[in-house]
Amino acid sequence: MLLEARDLRVSYGDVEAVHGVSFHVEEGELVSIIGANGAGKTTILNTVMGIIPSRGGSIYFRDTEITALPSHIRARQGIRLVPERARVFPLLTVFENIMTGLYGLRKSTDVPSRLSWIYELFPVLKERAKQLAQTLSGGEQQQLAIARALVSQPRLLLVDEVSMGLMPILVEKVFEVLGYLNKEENLTILLVEQNALASLSISHRAYVLETGTISIEGDAGTLREDPGVRKAYLGA
């Protein structure tokens, strides 16, 4: 198993936001966690990355426990996050933003081939390579955030609300890219989304999160047909 969370609990001060959640991601899978606003999706992802400490439970990555490790160590082990609202480095150029993703890895990476692969995936980033990241549009920043995470060839990509604030056509494109990466490049992805329809259409499995607990889990196709899920999240 690539990633496993057992009975994960996360609190903000005295308020528990995630109440004992367990989930796992297999190598090569694309797994979604869907749920409404405030269900705790982003919290879970940030806890996996190590940005927020967990109050209880444990996280395993490649069968070793990482619960206590700081996020930069987790990043070096191959977990990369595409944060909510991109969070690119605004005063660095697009190129520099991408290079931060290679920190500590440049000796073991064929940088030029990796870069050309990234630019092929997101041609707009090549055009804008010398621009400051803060001058990019929302959609371009989102692509940059994905590029920054991908350039290191992560073992596990965590994607947080990638559709938020993007126009529908871009949402489609971003999901297309994620689906392609998973299928063709065999990249393992854990996706957190409010846009349940789009994420279920590319996922293998999914978890439905309701106010900090997992209510339903299963095959993405089955969930799409599930009347409860359809009513609550797919607007049908």
């Binding site: 990355m49 190590g50 940005i51 700081p70 996020s71 930069h72 987790r74 990043a75 070096r76 990369r80 996050l81 944060p83 969070r87 690119v88 480095f89 605004p90 005063l91 660095l92 520099e96 290079m99 931060t100 993703g101 920190y103 500590g104 890895l105 440049r106 920054r148 995470a149 290191s152």
Partner: peptide, 24 residues
């Protein structure tokens, strides 16, 4: 240098930098 780039990324967004493998 790379050290400089790492510092800049911490200045811009410490959390994002640490999730890129850069130790603040």
């Amino acid at each position: 240098s790379w050290t400089g780039l790492a510092c800049f990324s911490i200045r811009d967004d410490e959390t994002a930098a640490s999730s890129m493998g850069i130790s603040p």
